[in-house]
Design a binder for these strands. Sequence first.
DNA 1: ATACTTAATTTATTAGTAAAACAAAGTTTT
DNA 2: AAAACTTTGTTTTACTAATAAATTAAGTAT
Lengths: 390, 390
Amino acid sequence: MKTGDQGLVKKINKSIVLSNIQTQSPISRAQISKVTGLNKATVSSLVSELIEEHLVDEIGAGLSSGGRKPMMLFFNQNAGYTIGIDLGVNYAFGVLTDLKGNVIQQDEVVITDTDEEIVFAQLKDLAQLLIDKTPACPYGLVGIGIGVPGMINNEGVILFAPNMDWHNVHLKQYMEQHFNVPITIENEAKAGAHGEKIYGAGRASSNLIYVSIGIGIGSGIIIEDKLYKGTSGISGEIGHFSIESNGRKCPCGNKGCWELYSSEHALLEKTAPLFPNEKNVNLSFLIQQAEDGNPQVINAFDQIGEYIGIGLTNIVNTFNPEQIIIGNRLARLEPWLRNPIQRVFKQRLLPYFQDSIALTFTDRSKNSCALGSAAFSIEKFFATNKVTVV
Amino acid sequence: MKTGDQGLVKKINKSIVLSNIQTQSPISRAQISKVTGLNKATVSSLVSELIEEHLVDEIGAGLSSGGRKPMMLFFNQNAGYTIGIDLGVNYAFGVLTDLKGNVIQQDEVVITDTDEEIVFAQLKDLAQLLIDKTPACPYGLVGIGIGVPGMINNEGVILFAPNMDWHNVHLKQYMEQHFNVPITIENEAKAGAHGEKIYGAGRASSNLIYVSIGIGIGSGIIIEDKLYKGTSGISGEIGHFSIESNGRKCPCGNKGCWELYSSEHALLEKTAPLFPNEKNVNLSFLIQQAEDGNPQVINAFDQIGEYIGIGLTNIVNTFNPEQIIIGNRLARLEPWLRNPIQRVFKQRLLPYFQDSIALTFTDRSKNSCALGSAAFSIEKFFATNKVTVV
DNA sequence: ATACTTAATTTATTAGTAAAACAAAGTTTT
DNA sequence: AAAACTTTGTTTTACTAATAAATTAAGTAT
């Protein structure tokens, strides 16, 4: 039980002030006071602390609205930097961002061998490369986050990453040994969900499910603005809920798992026979075919979309979320998936859900997994050092 | 954004003190100070307010442990009373409880006609009957809660109760007109989940799913100790997630819904042909048959249990909860359901989930729906009048 | 030039927790 | 049984943070 004291009050209010400056800047002290209801004096005092801590800058006077000009405040997004890495099965994509999530630098390495030690070394080099590009600033690098396609427990241990063939892998320890900053290892879909919630399409939603459809299907669950990790850290394994209770056996033990019908893997399996002479039937190839009007491919996309819709219906019935965001590789298929999904929603969802659900595809120009991973460190930084997150 | 001030601090601490007295009583001021970390003076001051508000009583001196005897404190559970009603399709069961959830009085009425006005009048009479039994006390009746088998929106409107044939029913308004206390209308499974979390088998779990298996299947989702209601208040409709994506059409619009295979309705449908001469094949009859060793009935129970296990597997994969509690009518089948469910878990769940999940059947001697409905009012009472719930 | 407006700081007040001193009521030691 | 110690709970004092009111600063409107 955490008791309350004046320090708590100050943390709360300081956090509110900072978050207002972050999201509404340029903003004056007077405006903050009006918006938050905090007394002008309180705002002034908290702002001056934030300025001393280099988290806020005075950027110059604003326009007068009939009286003294307000001094406009800016969030000093360059007070520190953070690294986020999206670790895939055959790539690792890293970003260096400022405290607002702006990408300062990015880099990608190709992974050809998923051997633990090789990948570890590649991740270390990728991080070092980005660290070397970190501009001089008061707080330096505040943390490194990595999104991994596997199950991560509450201690950050990678319990199982099927497509990497990893079991009980201690990436966190390895990174901590090499870099003296907080390390966050999180499931790729949870990181993606967080990225969408903080910086992406999910900012306005309190309850959203980010459905990561790649080789398999995972998800990140945001409930009341907060990532829900589950009791042991492995919530959201929705790729393995059964939509055919006695369907094909899945390696997970279950039968008829959703991802057997709706993932990139399922799509490739389904379409490969259409191109017996083509060695390299991959997603880009299929998209090209669809764009060229190949009816069989378009039909395959539609069928996958229908199965995706069936699974999403289950999610909506379970969570009653405001929004579902489709992420990862199959988000590229938006033009072909949106219709069948909406069609299934219309057929299968109760009317009460139909009105309240928004379907969004991730903006692939931003990597929400890498950004979300980076954002974890920013929150830890504020929570431990300066202000509480409200 | 709710800012912090000293009032907030006091609310938090007062709530902590009260909750310690509620759960640990008899307890002295000194002990509370030690347990909470609050200063002795702070505890004294907060306790004296609680005593003035009749929420806490000094019950006499305790045993000395080498010095002055401590004055033991008790939560005054009789400071107020609350009513909770479990509204079923053919019954309404009401309890009058004290502020600790002890049942003071209970009553049940039979519902033969689900016509809105008739049921409303029955509920009003049931509540009045319990009110008449309310002992004299400082706060009187602090609220009435009703758990309804249907979808309730955030404003307490019953959008749809299929088995009552209700659409857009304003029970809350009706009760408010007749009783001048806060009225809470909530879905039956959500109320049950809350009851289990506050008073029942789920007290120790932060993340739990209460699965109400009756005519249909609903659920209440507790996430981080809090009931998750969903964006429009209708989360947890897990009876309508599809486990046979192209299975039988369900009235909800979806196909192959879980409850078509796993509910009491499914069980009765499956077993009725076994007893062509029996007019009244109901749950009690089937249980009697199973107890008498009828292999066909036992087999039917096992099959239903398997389907329940398949659905629960989906839930575990999705939520990674600490605990699943089976509630409502089919909880009576625990002796026949536990094995097939555990069997399915063993076959279908990933090992990481197997360790962390506890399966519990509700204690049918307590009605968690009625108790949970009653508890809603207690929380509202403390939140609005005295202390915040922490 | 004077009166109004708005912004931000300074000063005084208030509310709540905490630390220390104290009072109350015991037990243990001699 | 007196003295010394313990534990409980209250009182006194100090401190911190928010707020209200007064003040200073820097404009605009007429």
